[in-house]
Design a protein around this nucleic acid. Structure first.
Lengths: 341, 341
DNA sequence: CTGTTAGCGCGTTCAG
DNA sequence: CTGAACGCGCTAACAG
């Protein structure tokens, strides 16, 4: 049987209350007594039973998810996963609330973060817009002792406790290699569609992509990035325009959202051309396009894993506990038409 | 606040003990009383607090993992993950024991399974050798009410509660497409190295691989499968031999373990040739080979996820609970040199 | 057949 | 500064 507080109390020759004060670092214990207890804890290898502790405290974890208002499938999917987590909240002792902020708007994000400083939830998860003022607002929360994790897109130089998202530089590099190898040495141009260079995930994907392209596939040249703001209509217009004007395009890398528009443009403008296309995020639209051959490979981050991981990490941090690192690594999924889930 | 047993008792006008009897389907309750309680449970939307229940019961979950004795990195890694789970056992209320059986030996597996029927652990996880007698032994356990999950390789036609492993047909198909597209229309032969056709995962990978090859890459022909029994030395010998004799080989698919031997053979025999190679399982050896260009892509199953998933599922089944399906799907990882973890 | 009561491991009063 | 006593939601004797 694993040791309990009683065992500590007996070993240290004190009462349960004193043990508890030491365990929860509350005041009112003499230094010598505290040391005695701490030694006992170490010697008998005590580990707190979190379930019992939460039961006694009647503890719940109020968590806040800050999500951008975006009309694209990926963000809808992310939202759905948060809703699914809310449905599990009674079982998981969480109380999750979502807050919507306009996309790519650092000011709005900062306002929400500062309000949360007052509210003091057990934890905050946010899809970060990468700006210094956002970083500062997050760091204020962290300094106030509120666990913060970034979701999907990280925040440069901030003190956030954890990032629940994929390695986007690696994602960009992988996209480049897939595109390069699938094109098998052909010479031509590659178009790149992004959402916005204001979010770090998109910048990093581009960075990784460009690096591998330059180093290993010199016969392919990258065209200036098209920024579609993750909006299907805008993406459609911009891509259609590029395909009309540039006949040298043989590959496309779509590193953001709004792929509905991209696919529409591809079907309209590239019926007679053979393009190799790599896109991000598995949605109903990209899935269909992968199956019908419009897209050749999809890189994906599993929104469900990201949300569940964020919750696990926030709860653990709130309790000062450690997490299974390998379990919280969000992997980059690569889907060909053969391994769709 | 979520409803508790007290609320049920009050609503149904009975005592806690009666509520408990109904909840745990124990005898000694009149039919009418039982119905009253069940209605109350339904009406107030009660869900049992598993943590509190386990605390009260002092419950632990004795689990048994049956693993094959194999000297290859993948099985070592799987073993390590089980050991890691054992290290967490006090926190997770598990008592995990591993049993080693000779690989590819249905008889040995059946003996162990039948012994477990006596021991009656809370759950059993096994790497299945796909044979009718094993299936029957597993079905006996299931009929006895013991939760069983297959790990890594599934068991055809059995009643096991769950399979914690990847979709191996999809894995084979994916390997074929990667190899085919990377080879970009070249004409030649493809060698296939497997462990044994006695395990279902290897058979399925081959099946998927052959299907896509035949349908979509007719310029590539598959050579007769080499069975290396997941043994590095045997794999080395057989692959070296094949490479010497067949100068038309331009691609290799290694769908089992023992890649240490494969890599050795490739480095010895194919220095002057340009082979495209897809292999399974990320280990120290395959990782190095991917980085130095000997291997072009690695398909992987995350042993840690498989073990943790098996444990979650076994515990849930033991309690008659449901699981988050999407969370228990083991994904096929695809690694290029750019997205290694 | 049903109810009472004493814990499980822990946190929190409230006296001392 | 320290300890005894009670309660969290649930289960398991033991009575009745």
């Amino acid at each position: 049987m694993r040791p309990t507080v009683h065992d500590i109390a007996a070993a240290a020759g004190v009462s349960l209350a004193t043990v508890d004060r030491v365990l929860n670092q509350r005041p009112g214990v003499r230094h010598v007594t505290r040391e005695k207890v701490e030694n006992a804890i170490r010697e008998i290898g005590y580990v707190r039973d979190v379930a019992a502790a939460n039961l006694a405290k009647g503890r719940t974890y109020p968590l806040v998810f800050i999500l951008p208002t975006s009309d694209n499938s990926f963000m809808h999917g992310l939202n759905d996963e948060v809703q699914a987590a809310i449905a599990r909240s009674s079982v998981e002792r969480t109380q999750i609330r979502t807050v919507e902020v306009p996309a790519f708007d650092p000011g709005a994000l900062v306002r929400v973060l500062d309000e949360l400083g007052e509210e003091r939830p057990s934890g905050v998860a946010l899809v970060a817009t990468d700006a210094p003022e956002v970083r500062d607002a997050v760091d204020r929360l962290v300094k106030d002792g509120i666990p913060v994790v970034t979701l999907v897109s990280d925040l440069t130089g901030s003190q956030r406790h954890h990032y629940a998202g994929v390695d986007n530089i690696a994602a960009g590099r992988t996209a480049a290699r897939l595109l390069g190898r699938f094109l098998g040495g052909s010479k031509g141009e590659v178009a790149v569609l992004a959402g916005s260079m204001l979010v770090r995930d998109h910048r990093e994907r581009l960075e990784g992509f460009a690096a591998v392209m330059a180093a290993e596939f010199p016969s392919l040249s990258i065209l200036p990035v098209i920024e579609g703001r993750d909006d299907p209509d805008m993406a459609h217009m911009l891509v259609a325009d590029a395909l009309s004007k540039k006949s040298g395009i043989i590959g496309v890398y779509s590193l953001g959202a709004g792929n509905r528009g991209l696919i529409k443009a591809l079907k309209e403008k590239a019926v007679d051309r053979s393009l190799t296309v790599v896109a991000h995020e598995l949605t109903a639209h990209t899935r269909a396009a992968l199956l019908d051959g419009t897209i050749d490979a999809i890189l994906n981050q599993n929104a469900g894993h990201e949300v569940r991981s964020a919750i696990r990490v926030l709860k653990a941090k709130a309790d000062g506990l450690s997490v299974i690192e390998a379990q919280e690594r969000i992997r980059l999924d690569i889907f060909l038409k053969d391994n769709l889930p």
